[in-house]
Design a binder for these strands. Structure first.
Lengths: 157, 157
DNA sequence: TAGACGTAGA
DNA sequence: TCTACGTCTA
C-alpha cells in the first residue's frame, strides 16, 4: 500500500487526513508526508527551484507553536539542539528552502509530542503557508531564523 | 510473532538459524538477537554479573574479521568511528562486559556488510567464545581494546 | 542522561 | 560526504 520513499510532492498527500497520527519518523517517510529521517525541514527541487515541502515541529527547538493556526518555526543548524559550540544559522538547506517558499507554496506541517514514557506521537496538522521570515538572537546569543507559518484555509477543520 | 524487546538472554535465540539475514538493526532487536539500536556490543546483568550477549561487526571499525571461525573485535568508545577528538578506550560498558565474558559464556555474533547502493545486510554468524583480550595502540595513537573470539564448535556449519 | 559499528536524503 | 526536531538500552 505504501510506495518505498515515493517522489517528493508539494501539498496534500492522497490518503492522509489532517489529524492522522504516527509513532515513528520512518512512517512519515514511507507515507510521503516528510522526507527526512531526522531533519525537521524536508525540501526538494521543483523545476530548478528548491522549495520546502514539509516541516516537523516536535519540541526540542524553542518558540514553536503559538496557536492552533499559526506556527513560528525555528530554522535548522547552528547546533541549536545540542547547545555545544553554537553558531549563527545559515541560509542554506532547509532554511533556504523555507525562504524560497515564502508566500509561494503550501507546506505540510507535522506536530509531534513526547509522552511521559519517552515515546513520541506525530500528527499531520495540514497545510500552511510561510507568511514571512526573519532573523533574531537566540538564547545562546547566535542568530537563528524564524519562519511564521499560517494555516491555509483559516481556523482548522 | 515477535515479542517487543524481550528479555536479554545468553546463547542461541530459538527460531533463529545461523545464516539468517536481516536488513535493519531494529529487526535484530525485535528478534532478540542484539539489544542495541546502534551499539556494537549488547550486554545485560545476569545474577549480578554484567556479561556480553552479542556483538555486531559491520565494518567501520578496524581489524575485524580474520577468518571464518575467528574474529578480532575492536572495543567501543574513544571516538574510533568519527575520528574526532580520539581518546583511550575505557574498560566500561560493552568493553567491560566482553572482558567479563572471557572464557565464560557464548556470545552471538552478527556480521554485517554494506552494498554498493549503501544498503546494509546483517547475518547471524552463530555463537563465539571470547578467548582473550588485550590493548593496543590504534591508528590514531590511542589505546583500543581487542577481543579475540572463536567460533564454538569449530569450523562452522 | 548519555552513548552508540544507524539511516535516509541532499 | 555530511547533516539531522531519531531511537533504544543501560
Amino acid at each position: 500500500i505504501f510506495a518505498k520513499s515515493g517522489k517528493q510532492i508539494i501539498g496534500a498527500i492522497p490518503g492522509v487526513e489532517v489529524g492522522d497520527k504516527f509513532h515513528y519518523r520512518v512512517e512519515l517517510i514511507l507515507i510521503g508526508l516528510h522526507h527526512q529521517i531526522q531533519g525537521g525541514i524536508a525540501y526538494g527541487n521543483f523545476g530548478g527551484k528548491v522549495l520546502a515541502t514539509s516541516v516537523v515541529a516536535s519540541g526540542g527547538y524553542a518558540d514553536d507553536l503559538h496557536n492552533k493556526d499559526t506556527l513560528i518555526y525555528t530554522g535548522q543548524g547552528g547546533n541549536v539542539m545540542n547547545r555545544k559550540d553554537p553558531q549563527d544559522q545559515k541560509l542554506e538547506r532547509g532554511n533556504l528552502a523555507l525562504k524560497n517558499s515564502v508566500q509561494t507554496n503550501p507546506v505540510r506541517v507535522i506536530r509531534g509530542s513526547e509522552s511521559l514514557d519517552g515515546s513520541r506521537t506525530y500528527f499531520y496538522d495540514g497545510l500552511y503557508l510561510v507568511e514571512k521570515y526573519w532573523q533574531e538572537r537566540g538564547p545562546l546569543g547566535k542568530l537563528v531564523f524564524k519562519f511564521q507559518m499560517n494555516r491555509i484555509g483559516g481556523s482548522g477543520n
